[in-house]
């Protein structure tokens, strides 16, 4: 298993390389020129060709892209110096992902401060939707074919056909604006280390939106998987031993039914991350999703590239974790 994880991590690094390289190519051959953007901003739209040339030179856009990519990689590994304009020089420590064109802050530092918010949203939301979705799915599977089951399945189908941003927006509108529920008024990220209660209440609405939406899908996955498992021969064996129907379902059924659900979870982790972009935007949470969105709008390419790398890294790690959990659940799977 250890060898497997190492192997997967190595291939993950290769993937990150490829992603960072393609983002880098975007800097050079993308639709807008970064030097122009920075020049415009730093000179309050009085960018002259001469000043533009200085920005180009300093940002390295006059070199070949692969030379600069080498510098970037070196920065990630060992840190480097970055120069904006003619005078300002910054020391960027490893792992250096560059400086934000907009705020002039080191990207990695900013990412570090924003990460807890994003993880709070994603982990809390995922926890909620699994914690709600799986039990409901299992309950529906046990009652499959009954009215309860059919009502549940069709109503959840309706919810999950609404686009998520619309769903989140409506949640926010109704809960905070229309009904003015005071508890939800104060959304946003407050560090858990400062004030856990505030952190909780700030996150709650985001979690509810993400959880309520995601749980509808996971209810369906869990239901489908459980229905299949309950038809397996080994479930019949468990029944024929004289076990109670609860231990048949939860001990023998659930563990097997979780395997495909967790696989889907791994595959859909990207959707969850995309979901955090909307969630953070709508509920005003200073996380990486919101940051990425702003960066795209502002053409802040170092941030765009850093957030893309962040997303990819999280996806890779999540998938390795899923495989490990998978092999723990199913002893037949040997990771190699």
């Amino acid at each position: 298993m250890f060898a497997y994880v190492v192997k997967r991590l190595l291939s993950g690094v290769v993937v990150l390389f490829l992603i960072s390289m393609s983002v880098f190519l975007l800097f050079w051959y993308g639709p807008s020129e970064p030097a122009q953007t920075i020049c415009d901003r730093d000179t309050s739209n009085r960018c002259t060709p001469a000043r533009l040339e200085v920005f180009r030179e300093n940002l390295g856009f006059n070199n070949e892209w692969y030379e600069e990519y080498g510098t970037f990689v070196k920065g990630v590994v060992a840190g480097r110096e970055i120069q904006f304009g003619s005078t300002t020089k910054f020391q960027c420590d490893a792992p250096c992902l560059g400086y934000s064109y907009r705020t002039k802050a080191p990207v990695f530092e900013e990412m570090k401060t924003r990460m807890p918010a994003t993880f709070s949203v994603a982990i809390g939301g995922a926890f909620l939707y699994l914690a709600i979705g799986i039990p409901i799915g299992v309950a529906a599977a046990r009652r499959r074919g009954t009215l309860t089951d059919k009502a549940l399945v069709s109503s959840f189908l309706v919810i999950s056909s609404i686009p998520y941003y619309l769903f989140a927006l409506l949640t926010w509108l109704f809960l905070t604006i229309t009904w003015e529920i005071p508890f939800f008024a104060d959304t946003g990220y407050f560090p858990i280390t400062d004030n856990p209660a505030k952190w909780f209440s700030g996150m709650l609405l985001a979690w509810l939106a993400l959880g309520a939406f995601g749980c509808t899908q996971y209810t369906r996955y869990a239901r489908g998987s459980m229905v299949e498992v309950l038809n397996e021969d080994y479930i019949r064996t468990a029944k024929s031993k004289g076990l109670t129907s609860n231990s048949v379902v939860y001990k023998h059924g659930l563990r097997a039914a979780l395997v495909p659900v967790i696989t889907i979870f791994g595959i859909e982790f990207g959707t969850l991350l995309a979901g955090t972009i909307f969630t953070e935007t709508i509920f005003d949470i200073e996380g990486i999703g919101l940051w990425a969105l702003e960066a795209v709008v502002q053409r802040d390419l170092p941030v765009v590239s850093a957030t893309a790398l962040f997303g990819a890294a999280v996806l890779i790690i999540a998938n390795i974790l899923v495989d490990v959990v998978y092999s723990i659940l199913d002893p037949r799977v040997r990771l190699s």
């Binding site: 021969d233 019949r236 064996t237 031993k241 097997a256 659940l329 002893p331």
Partner: peptide
């Protein structure tokens, strides 16, 4: 209370009938 106690059943295809996990 009877099932698996005073009466028991063994099934075809033991691989499928035993829990793989």
């Amino acid at each position: 209370k009877l099932r698996g106690n005073s009466m028991a059943m063994i099934f075809q295809d033991a691989l499928a009938a035993l829990h793989p996990f």
